[in-house]
Design a binder for these strands. Structure first.
Lengths: 153, 153
DNA sequence: CTGCCTGCAAACTCTTTGCACGAAT
DNA sequence: ATTCGTGCAAAGAGTTTGCAGGCAG
C-alpha cells in the first residue's frame, strides 16, 4: 500500500468514526509512514514535531490506538517496557519477529503456519483465535567475535 | 519436580551465589509453589504475607529475578503491563500460551517445534537464538453464547 | 453554537532503588 | 566485623487522563 493510499484510508477511517483530520494527526501519520524501522511513541513524537511542532505527547498517545485499530499500524510488543510500531504494509499479520537483544533490532519474518497453529489450538480449548505472535530472541554472532553488533544503527 | 526438590534447588542456588536463605525468601518460595495458576508479583506478595507478614513488596520484587534466573520460576509476558510467573515444572521451555482475553486465563501448550523454528530462522540472520515465544490471544466461545466466560475463576 | 481536539501537567501502574537498620556468619 | 538482607518511601519509566481553552463545521 502506497503512502497516498494509506493517507486516504486514514481519512476514511476518521470520517467513519466521526473524527476529524487535524494538522496534528496528519503530522503523526506522515511521521509514522516515513519510518523505515520499528519505532516507539517517543520517537514518533520527535519526528512528528519536526513536521508540526505543535504536536504533543498526549496527541501521539491518543492517535496511536486510532492508527492501530484502523490497521494502518501494527503494534509489536517484544516484552520490554516499550511498545514498538510499524506501518502495516500488508493486511496479513502472519509475521514472526526475530529480536537481536544486543541492539534491539527487530526482523520481521513471514510465518504463515502461525494462523493454522492458533486456530487448531484455540478450537481444542473452545476458544476463537484473535491473533498470534511468535518471537525469537537472539544474540548477534558478530558482536561476540568483533565486539560490534553488525545490526547496530 | 516436587516442591521439596524445588526448595533444595532454591537453597543450593542461593548458596552458590553467596546469598542467604531467609524467612522472607522462604515464604515467597512457598507462596509461589503453592499456586496452581499463573500469578503476578502483587498476588505473590499477598500469599507470601499470609505465610510471613513481614514480607515486603520490595523483597518480592528482589526475589523474583533470583527465582527466574535459577529456573525455578518461568516468566510469562503476555503483552500486558503485568508480568506473570509460573513454577517451572519442566526444564523445557518449549511451551506456547493461549490467552483468553475475556478472563486473562493462560493455557500452557507444548510446542516442541518452536525451538526448531527459532534456530532455523536465527541462523539465517547470523544470530544465535536464546529463546522463543508463541502466544495466541483468543475469545471464549461460551462467553459469547451464555454471557459467562467458562474459564473465569 | 455544539462538539470534537488540543497541550499541559498531574495522575497512574508497575517496578526499581537509596537509605539506614537488622541479622547471619 | 563484615557482608548480606530488609522495609520503607521515594523515584522511575511509560502511558493515560482531567481540565480549560481552541478550532472546525
Amino acid at each position: 500500500m502506497s503512502n497516498d493510499a494509506a493517507r486516504e484510508k486514514f481519512k476514511d477511517y476518521l470520517a467513519s468514526k466521526g473524527l476529524r483530520m487535524t494538522n496534528q494527526r496528519l503530522a503523526i501519520f506522515e511521521a509514522a509512514f516515513a519510518r523505515k524501522e520499528h519505532f516507539t511513541a517517543e520517537e514518533l513524537l520527535d519526528h512528528a514535531r519536526a513536521i508540526d511542532d505543535s504536536v504533543s505527547r498526549a496527541t501521539v498517545y491518543r492517535t496511536l490506538p486510532i492508527m492501530t485499530e484502523s490497521a494502518l499500524l501494527r503494534e509489536v510488543d517484544i516484552g520490554t517496557n516499550l511498545k514498538y510500531y510499524l506501518p502495516n504494509s500488508s493486511n496479513n499479520a502472519q509475521v514472526a519477529q526475530v529480536i537481536c537483544v544486543d541492539c534491539d533490532k527487530i526482523f520481521e519474518i513471514s510465518a504463515p503456519f502461525m494462523e493454522w497453529y492458533g486456530s487448531t489450538v484455540s478450537t481444542k480449548l473452545g476458544l476463537t483465535p484473535i491473533s498470534q505472535r511468535l518471537q525469537v530472541s537472539a544474540h548477534c554472532d558478530a558482536l561476540k567475535k568483533t565486539g560490534i553488533c553488525k545490526n547496530h544503527a
